[in-house]
Write a protein that binds this DNA or RNA. Structure first.
Lengths: 172, 172
DNA sequence: TATAGATATTACATTTATGTATTAAATGAT
DNA sequence: ATCATTTAATACATAAATGTAATATCTATA
């Protein structure tokens, strides 16, 4: 059990030890918050890389996937660029480039909004919906596998704590 | 209380609602893992941006900070490029560029290793140590503020769950 | 209706991150 | 000792992400 955990933590252990040493040299350094931030970073990188690898056969990457899924999760599969930016957590400058690429690939369509001519509507095309439905089974499998180490109860707890964390980050 | 949470969650709520809709359209979609992954992403981006903003006056960015701190947390302030890559969670191709910049700024030094001529030792310079000690108070303040919403007990719980999550990611 | 202010969107330049291929040196087997 | 294999490190080309500034349309007010 202890051995298992040591093995599972192999990539993070050295990082944690270095934070430990830092605390000795600089006692005011808050070990716990620093560990959390590092863990978040390591997890994010891993999740990002896994998704990119899975999606490669479809010719899209993780950020593009996120955009497609945000549209897929919206009534009539339609959002403005700015809504999409917020939903996907991308900066607006990135949205232009990413949606251009998705348009070029025929996965989404742009149409001018009638009500407000400042706005543009981004809508999933038939091909886009079809592609989503073709990779979703693999995505589901990946998500299940990535979280296989957590009990349902632990996942709920983790969700609650991460939301609290994010909430505080947005206050500051 | 409920209002507070809703307010604090303002940026994540739309994302969560979209995942909800996705589940209705595709019942096999595992909502909980997807929410966790999204939360990680949102938190990471925020933490990354905050650190970059804080470090700007010193002329370094978050990845460079991470490298400096990994050296600072090591005996004799010295690591090989490959150890540094693993500790900081950067791909090796990035290490060359980042350490070049840190060398140019006089914050670290390169010396050839005697034992193994394949290796290069990267060591914090006096200027590097001085810079770290000059920004550390601000970093400590930032870390404290970012986690101010979490009780010590909650942080420990979060750490435990994130480690479990990361451990599983590395198995897969 | 004219105009000031706000918001959305995009274009462009720059910085950051990654993938692939190459070089160099150590290790191990014959 | 020699050659094949492995590992470390880097160079170069490409892709991704960001910041800044410019443009266009809306809203509200005089």
């Amino acid at each position: 059990m202890i051995a298992d955990q040591a093995k599972a933590m192999s990539s993070f252990l050295p990082t944690e030890q270095r934070l430990q040493i830092t605390c000795r040299q600089h006692p005011a350094f808050p070990r716990e918050p620093a560990v959390l931030v590092r863990l978040i970073k390591h997890i994010y990188k891993r999740v990002h890389d896994d998704a990119n690898a899975l999606l490669k056969p479809w010719g899209i990457n993780h950020p593009e996937y996120n955009l497609l899924m945000m549209l897929y999760g919206t009534e009539r599969y339609t959002l403005n660029p700015s809504q999409l930016a917020e939903a996907a957590g991308e900066k607006s400058a990135n949205i232009t480039r990413l949606t251009n690429e998705l348009c070029d690939k025929g996965l989404i369509e742009r149409t001018a909004s009638d009500e407000d001519r400042r706005k543009i509507a981004l809508t999933l095309s038939k091909a886009g919906i079809a592609m989503i439905e073709s990779f979703l089974p693999d995505i589901c499998t990946l998500l299940e596998r990535q979280t296989a180490g957590l009990q349902p109860r632990e996942m709920l707890q983790l969700e609650k704590l991460l939301k609290k964390f994010l909430g505080q980050l947005e206050l500051a």
